[in-house]
Structures are given as C-alpha cells and as structure tokens.
C-alpha cells in the first residue's frame, strides 16, 4: 500500500517513489507482453484457465450486460464475456499498458471477436467512464500492480451500476503452511529461471513473485473493498489460496 507521508510505495520488495511505480510496472509488462500467454500457461501449468472459468461462472453475466474487463491484458476474459453478452451488450477491455492492449486486440481480432468489444487505455485509479455505468467489473491479476489500490477500488465503485458486482481475481496467501513452503520455493527459485529461459527476462518474473508476497491477503483485501463501499463482500480460495476470487456488490 502507498505510504503517503513520504510518497513511497513498494515495487516487489524494493521501495520506490510512488510516481515511479507506474513506469516500472509498465516496463515489466512491455517486456513480457509478447510471451504473456505462453508464460501464463507454463507458470501456472494451465490452471489459470480454470481460475478464469470460475470467475466467469461467478460473474452472473447475461446478454445485454455492460462489462469492464480491467487490466484485461491479453483478453482471456473479454473473449468469453463478449460471446455471452451478445450483440446487445458490450465489453470494454481496459489496460494501463498499451503493449498489452495491442497484443490483446490483435489476439481477439484474429479470433473473430469484434463488434461488441472496445479497447481503452486507462489507469484503474482514474477510470474514464461515467458514474453507474457497468453491470460487472472484473480485474484479474491486475490489482497487485496498481499503485494506490484504495483509490482504484473507489474508482471502480463509482463506475459500477447499483446492483452491479466487482470480481477481483488475484494471487493471495495459501492457507496451509506446507503449501506455502512449496509455493515459495517454486516462485523464487523455479519461476525466475523459467522466465529467464523462455521470455529471456528473469527480472520481470522475480518482480511477479515479490509483488505477490506484498499483495494484501484475503481478509485485508476484503476489508479494503468494504471500506470503499462494497457490500456482501466474500471470497473463494482457489487452489489452496494461491489465488483468491473476491466478490463485492454495489447496492
């Protein structure tokens, strides 16, 4: 979280000036954009697809809905939402990083997903949308990289329609100590090596592992969502808590 008194924040385990974090995160994602999908499959052994499927099942999305896929990266969720909401609905894929947005747009167009999808480069802290606009907002593996998470959550609350819901899919804290050990070993020893070997970029994946450890745990994030106004907030631990899906409503 941002320490406002002296204007610093964390970047992985390093402490940096708040206004630098955006650029540093951006450079990580510029450098991994092209290999993002391959690396996701490899690093999570394909399980990230199941996490995303679970998110869609929990979304309650229907034809005609307006969906915002924040930090949507290469558009995995957008593709599915686009098919479900149909011609009467719309999906907005927003990402702060234009490299990721370009990769996402190219991928979705190649797959014939056009018509109800728009692409917006936006900062989650200052969403450029009117109040009470979306039926559903999802942010999958994105909140971690946002500098001021409270501000981002408040911004999401503002653009969500009353009755709409927010889904946050993010790495979290494993609930068993044994799993935690294995997971730590995997993320600090194996993961950066894999990044080195495949994407030729060990540093970015070192950042990934560190930023996951710095991210608030299940209960803290739940509290943060409640603080900005979300109600009936609950979370599901997936794969032993390595990932958690938080869901909150605006009434």
């Amino acid at each position: 979280m941002t320490d406002k008194s002296n204007n610093t924040t964390h970047f992985g385990y390093k402490t940096v000036e708040s206004d630098q974090k955006v650029d540093m995160v951006a450079s990580v994602f510029h450098s991994v954009a092209a290999k993002y999908d391959v690396m996701n499959d490899l690093m999570s052994m394909g399980i990230h697809r199941l996490w995303k499927r679970f998110t869609i099942d929990c979304s309650g999305v229907r034809p005609g809905h307006k969906v915002l896929d924040l930090a949507g990266g290469t558009g995995d969720l957008t593709a599915k939402f686009s098919r479900i909401v149909g011609d009467t609905g719309s999906v907005t894929l927003a990402d702060i990083n234009d490299s990721m947005l370009k990769v996402g747009r190219a991928k979705l167009r190649d797959r014939g997903i056009v018509g109800n999808v728009t692409y917006v480069q936006a900062n989650a802290e200052e969403l450029p949308f009117p109040d009470n606009h979306f039926d559903l907002i999802t942010i999958a593996f994105g909140l971690r990289n946002v500098t001021d998470k409270d501000k981002a959550l408040a911004s999401m609350f503002r653009v969500l329609k009353p009755g709409g819901r927010l889904l946050v899919l993010e790495f979290s804290k494993p609930d068993s100590e044994a799993l935690n050990k294995v997971y730590d070993f995997y993320s600090f020893n194996i993961l950066p090596k894999m990044g080195e070997l495949i994407a030729d970029d060990g540093e970015s994946y070192q950042y990934l592992a560190e930023s996951i450890r710095m991210h608030p745990n299940q209960e803290t994030l739940k509290g943060m969502m409640e603080t900005v106004g979300f109600e009936s907030v609950e979370y599901h631990n997936l794969t032993g808590g390595i990932v958690a899906l938080h869901r909150g409503y605006k009434f």
């Binding site: 099942d57 309650g60 229907r62 034809p63 098919r83 479900i84």
Partner: peptide, 15 residues
Amino acid sequence: FIFSSQIDVLAKYDG
C-alpha cells in the same frame, strides 16, 4: 451451453 460463433459451457449462469 451458450451458443455464439462457438459454444461456451458454464456451470453457473444467472440469466
């Protein structure tokens, strides 16, 4: 089973 240009299969659907 949700039909579009392909088929999407969900276990939960609110509509």
